[in-house]
């Protein structure tokens, strides 16, 4: 079983509050473009919302793809995170992730993905519709 967040996306309203708080937690600014969860409101067609984030899949091809060994294991949580200091910004992880779970920061200089906020994911706490679960 993957260790990432679960989402009941049918209930998602596209409010972006998860992305707002995620960016605040990780960057000290309100800046959804640097969020580790990406909310895509797709209207009028297909008339759905899509949530992209690292699901912490068991296979984690991103870890193997990274030439700088910058994607490291958080042993306590058993999930992999991007070590920004060591990430060279090559984008290999972004390419191999089958779940659109990992992408480049807007500066294009390093990859970002969900790190479960060290154990208490902020988005789960704030989602007003109970969409996200740990």
């Amino acid at each position: 079983m993957s260790k990432g967040l679960k989402a009941d996306v049918e209930k998602c309203t596209g409010c972006q509050i998860c992305a707002i708080v995620c960016s605040a937690h990780h960057t000290g600014k309100f800046n959804p473009s640097e969020s580790r969860i990406n909310v895509l409101d797709m209207f009028p067609e297909p008339g759905e919302v899509k949530l992209n984030y690292c699901i912490h899949c068991d296979e984690h091809p991103c870890v193997e793809a990274c030439p700088a060994e910058a994607i490291k294991l958080n042993e306590e949580l058993g999930v992999y995170y991007v070590d920004r200091e060591e990430c060279t910004g090559c984008g290999a992880c972004v390419e191999v992730c089958p779940y659109d779970g990992c992408w480049m920061d807007p500066s294009e200089s390093y990859a970002i993905k969900c790190d479960l906020c060290g154990g208490t994911p902020q988005c789960v706490e704030v989602c007003p519709k109970g969409v996200l679960k740990r």
Binding site: E10, K11, T13, G14, C15, Q16, I17, I20, D41, F43, G47, V49, K129
Partner: peptide, 8 residues
């Protein structure tokens, strides 16, 4: 479905 504005 229900739909929200940013931050609502």
């Amino acid at each position: 479905r229900k739909k929200a504005c940013f931050g609502c």
